[in-house]
């Protein structure tokens, strides 16, 4: 028989359901705030220390597994090589994402205008969505004027679909009564789209943006692996392969870290944009303490 154990102080603050205005002041204590940052950072530091000790204690050679310090060194020394590569990858990722946003949203708006348009375009949407985009990379490399364009198209196609399908779902998920209300007041199609459907679809759009942002980077890297391009305009993926061939493992790790950093930055940026546009009204962006 286990006994009931009371854990922690009970929160007796009863925010009644009828209270006029739910007061949403975060009640997190200072200690918890500090711990919220300290715990993940601590775990990260612990991981790096463990990595370092593993290499040093086992005497693992640099060309198999470098120490964190080696990687940091390489990051500094190879900066002139890595920076242009990072720039190339960033440019492809963000151009692809921007195109996917514009294209996905425009396409979604077009699709929800009429069920005939949707039906007509449905097979293409399915075909493009189920085909692993990377499998058409070789074709794109033949047809596109240059490798950069091929990478861009790949990355675009991958980021495009989550944005499109989220946006379509969002535009269709408008409260039926609100649509009736717009109808009642004789709203035009355009007014309904701008004032009602697009704002209602924002949470879905933001979900699409976050997924699409991450996928654009992944696709940009994977497509470059497939392209195996070299020379001036090569991105981080090429530097990864090159480092591997040359057994320059510290640089490989450095390139990897840059990619991870880019991924985190994209995630942070898209999450921030989502928070900025939704935090005042949408559940997904509101802090709840229950």
């Amino acid at each position: 028989m286990s006994e009931m154990v009371q854990t922690g102080p009970r929160d007796d603050d009863e925010a009644g359901t009828d209270s006029a205005v739910a007061i949403l002041v975060p009640r997190t204590s200072t200690t918890e705030k500090v711990l919220r940052i300290a715990v993940p950072v601590g775990m990260l530091v612990l991981g790096v220390v463990a990595w370092h000790l593993t290499v040093v204690l086992n005497g693992i050679p640099k060309y198999i597994l470098p120490t964190p310090a080696d990687v940091a060194n390489s990051l500094l020394n190879d900066w002139p090589t890595l920076l242009p590569a990072l720039w190339v990858t960033l440019r492809i990722t963000f151009t692809a994402l921007a195109l996917a946003l514009v294209g996905g949203v425009a396409m979604a708006i077009l699709l929800v205008q009429s069920k005939w348009i949707e039906l007509a375009l449905f097979p293409y949407a399915v075909i493009l969505q189920v085909t692993p985009i990377i499998a058409i990379a070789p074709l794109l490399l033949i047809y596109a004027p240059d490798t950069q364009t091929a990478l861009l198209i790949c990355s675009f196609l991958v980021a495009f679909f989550p944005i499109l399908s989220n946006m379509v779902t969002g535009l269709k998920s408008v409260d039926h009564n609100l649509l009736n209300l717009y109808d009642l007041y004789g709203a035009s199609r355009w007014q309904t789209l701008i004032y009602l459907k697009i704002p209602a679809a924002m949470p879905y759009f933001m979900a699409g943006l976050r997924i699409g942002g991450g996928l654009a980077l992944i696709a940009a890297v994977v497509a470059e692996f497939a392209a195996g391009s070299a020379g001036e305009g090569s991105g981080l993926a090429f530097r990864l392969l090159e480092s591997q061939y040359r057994l320059n493992i510290p640089r490989l790790f450095a390139a990897l870290i840059l990619l991870t950093g880019t991924g985190i930055a994209i995630f942070g940026l898209t999450s921030f944009i989502a928070w900025l546009s939704l935090h005042r009204w949408h559940e997904s962006a509101i802090k709840r303490e229950n």
Binding site: L181, P199, A200, M202, W281, H282
Partner: peptide, 8 residues
């Protein structure tokens, strides 16, 4: 239902 636009 109140049928309000939550973003407004």
């Amino acid at each position: 239902e109140p049928t309000l636009m939550p973003w407004k």
